[in-house]
Amino acid sequence: MSDYNFAYLDEQTKRMIRRAILKGIAVPGYQVPFASREMPMPYGWGTGGVQVTAACLVPEDRLKVIDQGADDTTNAVSIRKFFQRTAGVAVTEATTEATIIQTRHRIPETPLTEGQILVYQVPIPEPLRFLEPRETETRKMHELEEYGLMHVKLYEDIARHGQIATAYAYPVKVEGRYVMDPSPIPRFDNPKLSGNCAIQLFGAGREQRIYALPPFTKVVSLDFDDHPFHASKAPHDCDLCGAKHSYLDEVITDDAGGRMFVCSDTDFCSGRRTAGHIGRLGTDPAHSRPHPSPTNAEGGSLPPRGERMGVGAHRQVGSA
């Protein structure tokens, strides 16, 4: 613990953020402006999500942080450490044990339960931004429910690519009213937004907006009658745990075209391996934990994701 106030932000700031969160929950999908603070990390690294998490945290909470589904990449590790240091809360990698999950770009594969809070990091909260640059105009469009333009974007996709090519940040309509940017989650995750038991909060630090989906909110992905929405993923099974229906990352393993597909949700993948599921390239999970020397896919044992992808090798997760 340090000299910081609990969870870094001062109490008045947390109060202000909680007000914005409550308003966001009262009007699902509506972007509530809030006075975003400077955080000790650069914009784009989750300053919005961190502020929302800080405002929600209580000492009894158990925090999980994921980045692209992984618990062990730089962003996730540094945010988790940040709250370990400033709030002293317990942390976990297990989705089922967490009370607050801060996420960047994924919804965990394991279904969330009542009482959990999922906090998204949002770079650009305005779904109409790249179609209409004027903020005054986009606000008016939300106010008057003029969302034809959103379909123009989908039309352009089909005209150019033969199908709706928007693969992430796929626009959704909340309870038949506001069109919302679900943050850059893959569209594979879109169906999980709807009717979710957990509270879903979205924080955009640079753009100073908070929006929310209360539990069991109806969320519909926009589409055309003759080009319906479908949740897409790579047509493979996980090479480590053999999961057929989880979202996969493609990992290049050598410079001769070798590649493997692994679950992007590391907790889900390791949970399955512990339960005895083995994929095409998988081995007994007891031997695939941190390994000092780099190995290739043929070698059987794989270093943890973070190291494979050349990002931070910190693995003191859960040691608090």
Binding site: D223, D226, H227
Partner: peptide, 13 residues
């Protein structure tokens, strides 16, 4: 197509 979509057309074809 924009005006059509603005008044509710949702059939790409």
């Amino acid at each position: 197509g924009e005006r059509l979509m603005a008044v509710g057309a949702r059939h790409y074809g």
